Computed example of a mutant assay.
Amino acid sequence: MDVKLINPFIDAVTTVMPQMGFQDIAKGKVSVREKSAMSLGVTVLVGVTQAVRGNVAYNMTDDTAKFIASTMMCGMPVENFDDMAQSAISEMANMLTATAATNLTTMGYAVDISTPTLTVGDGFNVKISNSQYLVIELLISSKPFEINIALE
């Protein structure tokens, strides 16, 4: 996978997340994995189509998802990962991927994205690719957050 396809996603996180109230964002390791991601608790899968094709999966723990949802909802406590919190996390994934798609379009790649698919539960595999894909590990206010990217 071409690294120039990855940077639009990193740029999306560093642009969009601060607009939603997240100031402490740290990039961790970038690694390569095979085919499937093990869910950390909450995973949102978004498809990318047209000139660039593949999948992006945002993977986080339950605690990270509740923290992000709470921040997006102006600090409203999120004790259970209910429909409102799930909607907030899906919208975050949509905003991040749409921003990355806009960045890719600016680079000359015509792209479109699918509606996010949210899954809840830890310990199951989410197929990302038929081969290898990249994982960008981030810490958002010290909470683990992964972006799994399989694009061609």
Rank of each mutant, 00 (worst) to 15 (best):
I140E: 03
N59A: 06
I136Q: 10
Q132G: 14
L138A: 05
P116A: 11
V126L: 15
P8L: 07
L139C: 06
V32S: 12
A93C: 07
S142L: 13
M60L: 10
N130Y: 12
V78G: 04
P18E: 11
Y109D: 05
T97W: 02
Q50K: 13
M20W: 01
K127M: 14
V78K: 05
N80G: 03
M17A: 09
K27C: 05
A88F: 01
M20V: 04
T14D: 05
G47Y: 02
D83N: 10
A100G: 08
A37M: 09
S36H: 10
T97H: 06
R33T: 08
T119P: 01
S141T: 15
Q86A: 09
D24E: 14
A51Y: 04
D11G: 10
V111W: 02
E79I: 08
D24T: 12
L134G: 03
D63K: 11
M73F: 07
V13R: 00
R33Q: 14
L40M: 15
K127V: 14
R53D: 05
M20H: 09
G108P: 11
G121A: 14
D112R: 10
E91R: 05
L118Q: 05
V135G: 06
T106P: 01
T14I: 09
A85S: 08
M20T: 02
R33S: 13
D2P: 11
G47A: 07
T119Q: 13
S131E: 15
E152I: 13
Y109V: 07
M84S: 08
E146Y: 05
K143Q: 15
E79A: 09
F22V: 03
T99V: 04
T119E: 13
A85R: 01
T71A: 08
A85N: 04
M76N: 06
S142N: 15
K35F: 07
V56F: 02
F22I: 08
A110S: 15
T117Q: 15
F145T: 01
V120G: 05
G28Y: 07
P144L: 09
A57W: 00
I25T: 06
F22T: 00
S87Y: 02
S39N: 07
I68Y: 00
T15K: 14
L104N: 03
V78T: 07
M20E: 08
A88E: 00
T49D: 09
V3Q: 13
G21H: 10
G41K: 04
T15L: 09
F67D: 02
M1T: 14
S31I: 12
N148S: 11
S87D: 10
E34G: 02
